[in-house]
Write a protein that binds this DNA or RNA. Sequence first.
DNA 1: ACAAAAGTGTTGGTACTACACCCATGT
DNA 2: ACATGGGTGTAGTACCAACACTTTTGT
Lengths: 227, 227
Amino acid sequence: MNTIEPSDRIGVAVDVVIFTVDDGHLQVLLSRREHEPFEDRWALPGGFVRPDESADQAAERELTAKAGLVGVFLEQLYTFSDPARDPRNRVVSVAYYALVSRDRLGAQAGLRESRWFRVDHGAGEVQVPELGLAKPCLAFDHDRILEAAVHRIQGKLEYVPIGFQLLPQRFTLTEIQQVYEAVLGHPIDKRNFRSKLLKSGQVREVDAYRTGAHRPARLYEFTRRTF
Amino acid sequence: MNTIEPSDRIGVAVDVVIFTVDDGHLQVLLSRREHEPFEDRWALPGGFVRPDESADQAAERELTAKAGLVGVFLEQLYTFSDPARDPRNRVVSVAYYALVSRDRLGAQAGLRESRWFRVDHGAGEVQVPELGLAKPCLAFDHDRILEAAVHRIQGKLEYVPIGFQLLPQRFTLTEIQQVYEAVLGHPIDKRNFRSKLLKSGQVREVDAYRTGAHRPARLYEFTRRTF
DNA sequence: ACAAAAGTGTTGGTACTACACCCATGT
DNA sequence: ACATGGGTGTAGTACCAACACTTTTGT
């Protein structure tokens, strides 16, 4: 118990659930696997933790390597350790989730056959409609990881201001409402949403308007800029 | 990236923060380490995950082996993976926390030089007064793990009914209030606490009284008996 | 002029806080 | 009888949900 036997050693990986909101829907970045096991199946971006880095660092590294993203919101989600979760080797996965705004997605997201997929979660069930309704639709236990990540951001959104991670620096109140609706999966009353958000002091109005096909919309920014 | 090199393998351990409430205070079970590193220092009970078990199973096994506890509330907390957290080998620790009622603590808790220590957390700082105020007072990064566990149960207690895990099946309203006060670290108004708890439907009164030195107190039990 | 999204207040109900006195029992 | 913990209600405030119309712009 005080020394580590080789047999006690286990592969440690990170998997990152990268979310964005686009087109009024929650989206997740998936990569097509290029190797066995689960070759050609869609999976969460991930990889092994190196001997000299923490899991947090490994997750950041994955984020940069697989999605070209630096400095985005990233938090640990849960550790998945079923001995059978990888059919070949014993691998424990420390799962993370990241939130990215559309405007930080450049051409990078085309790297390594990876794409954004819409995530639906109407009646409790979390689904990736493009991949069919039958579970599992992802490699390994990534369906479970995705489901846990969706539940986490839903719960967290209600009491911590993480919504702005999914928005550009300046945004309209309608845009932030759409983010909330996409994450929570249900419509929200416009007047209640706006008055609550403004009273909370999380946002401040700026002297600019988003101009478009109709009446221009006032722009806002978050008061606490993190990172 | 598709096969695991020996150099990618890392020791995977679990550490369990076992809480109880006694004497109006939150208490944590610590074991004295019998080996290097940190020999003779107090530490959270823990051990390596075996090749054929999940981290959850390893945590349950530790709970039984180190504290004689079976079937108690146990949840994953966070995974600690700083490469320097163990000065000798690379070990990632999946931390858990457990909640136990005093009445389930038998003579078992004397095993392997382990004892309960009071945990204080008045002004945000989490401290084990008996071990002094200077940090670190525990082995490895166990101070950080303990702190994270205290924050977790404080947050969770406010919106999920986990308080009854720290109580015997039947209890008085004063007893459950003392549990809340011990965990949250501040006094609570008696009338507000009672009316809120009763209105929530979490408890049901039973036809029995706790008799003692003064007026007998009505006993209650939780409506949802888990496990 | 019209289509489309922006913007704006009130009302009723519910939940939370603060607060002080009488009751039942053992000694 | 008294000391000790058990038990109870109300009033003010803050938050939440439901709800519909006017304004501004581009076409």
